[in-house]
Design a protein around this nucleic acid. Structure first.
Lengths: 257, 257
DNA sequence: CGAACTTTTGATATCACTCAAGGGACGTGG
DNA sequence: CCACGTCCCTTGAGTGATATCAAAAGTTCG
């Protein structure tokens, strides 16, 4: 077993690095879906500036809540999830910087799922009035946001395929490839590695596996020389190999662009 | 084994019965999300009238296609699906009368999944121009369609929970409950039963199980007195029991309304 | 009445789960 | 600076749910 954990966590440096790149995360993400005007970018920058910090493992919205607006994650990682009566949690999406929850919140009388931070985050909240204006009078930025939502939907379908029909090792391989591409797209990957502030329990609730089996599967991925994972920092050592194993095709993330 | 299959399929009578109720399926569905004007209803009726028949097991769109418009299912059942390199199919959604695929097609450069009929269907196609007009200048009907899309998303999340963390018997129980509610909502259920023109192979590709295990699980559901299933006609004998088993909560289908 | 598909059954294999316990790492308070 | 509690990760052993393989029986349709 290659454990070799460093003494300290990487969170502080993670946060420090993000402090500079993040005003861009949201903009970078949306610009992939079409050119934004200077006005649009200013507006997005204002949103970023108004963001506030939230501790790890904090609920932003709970299932059944009447939504107050649209959350945008500017730093850190969060997730959508559903809870089963027995207490089991299924994570249905990861939210990384630049991601937001659902342009159509204003139409939603109540949440059918919860949203919770996985790591410490910086989060902004767009109020319902702003969203209504955006959706009732669509402009360039609305279009970009709608395309981002299409990607989210496609990602959810990929996750269903993953969990519905792939083996444990394939599920994790696929997930790690997906996250690499998403972190790259917002400038938060260096080469083939990125910070993954997520516990093995979180991975288990994501992939529909038990924690024990996630642990063993991660070891197998390391043993095969496909990844390294220490201190919540993931390095992909053999990206083509990992992609082949997880049947990862990046198309769905960029909508073919 | 309680097989007791009737000599003929029920498709003909199914189609005949639908011929009357279907002009309403789309309208009934959208009216649950807000009052439509007479003009809106007329427009929907025109769409219904322009629908054409499609044979069972026919692809409407394939992954990678550039979408030509928005499909609406007016009779029969269809599905969204993804294919894995090995040929395995994961069904990611069932489309029943009144369902349609994605108001934002116009933004989608290519399909990330396929759509195929499961039974014989009547299908209408809205062209891209119409959709652009609809989305760029939202009106009552656009709002209703957006809400329908929110329900589709919520359903997809439920499916992920189903496949990601429930047992075989729970997955099928949950699915059958969901379909009952959806068929009821468009007037295609009689009491606690409905036509389910779907093979056990289709159910397997939906639930992430093998056909063999689907078969055995269906037998177990019958043995427990929860359902009857003959000639593609499903009768739920103990709805509360089936709901409890599948942890089915109808909320996500109606957005809490 | 034969071909293709679907459902059913039996036997065997395996992937992933559960239970149980030990070992790190980190934070806190004494 | 140490003692303690809490997470999180790791490991072992045993079990169980579901898959796979193979084949027969029923169904549909031309």
């Amino acid at each position: 077993m290659i454990t070799d954990q460093r003494p300290g966590r990487t969170f502080p440096s993670f946060a420090a690095r993000e402090a500079h790149s993040v005003p861009n995360a949201l903009i970078r993400k949306l610009e992939r879906f079409g050119t934004l005007g200077a006005e649009d970018r200013d507006w997005l920058r204002q949103i970023s500036d108004a963001a506030y910090p939230v501790a790890a493992r904090t609920d932003l919205v709970r299932e059944g809540d009447v939504p107050e607006g649209l959350f945008m994650i500017l730093e850190g990682m969060a997730c959508r999830f559903k809870l089963r009566p027995c207490g089991a949690r299924q994570i249905t999406a990861y939210l990384i910087p630049g991601d937001f929850c659902d342009l159509d919140v204003a139409l939603r009388p109540q949440m059918d799922h919860g949203i919770s931070t996985l790591s410490a985050c910086r989060v902004a909240l767009l109020d319902l009035g702003t969203i209504r204006r955006l959706t009732e009078n669509p402009k360039a930025i609305t279009r970009a946001m709608r395309m981002a939502t299409l990607v989210d939907d496609a990602t959810l379908r990929e996750w269903l395929v993953n969990v519905g029909s792939r083996s444990a090792i394939q599920r994790i391989a696929h997930l790690f490839c997906e996250l690499l591409m998403r972190f790259r797209a917002i400038g938060l990957a260096r080469g083939d590695s990125y910070e993954l502030p997520v516990s093995q329990l979180d991975l288990a609730d994501t992939t529909g596996l038990s924690t024990v089996h996630v642990n063993r599967t991660l070891q197998e991925l390391k043993r095969q020389g496909l990844i390294e994972l220490r201190s919540r920092s993931l390095m992909i050592r053999d990206l083509p190999g990992l992609q082949a194993l997880g049947e990862f095709e990046a198309g769905y993330l960029s909508l073919g662009a």
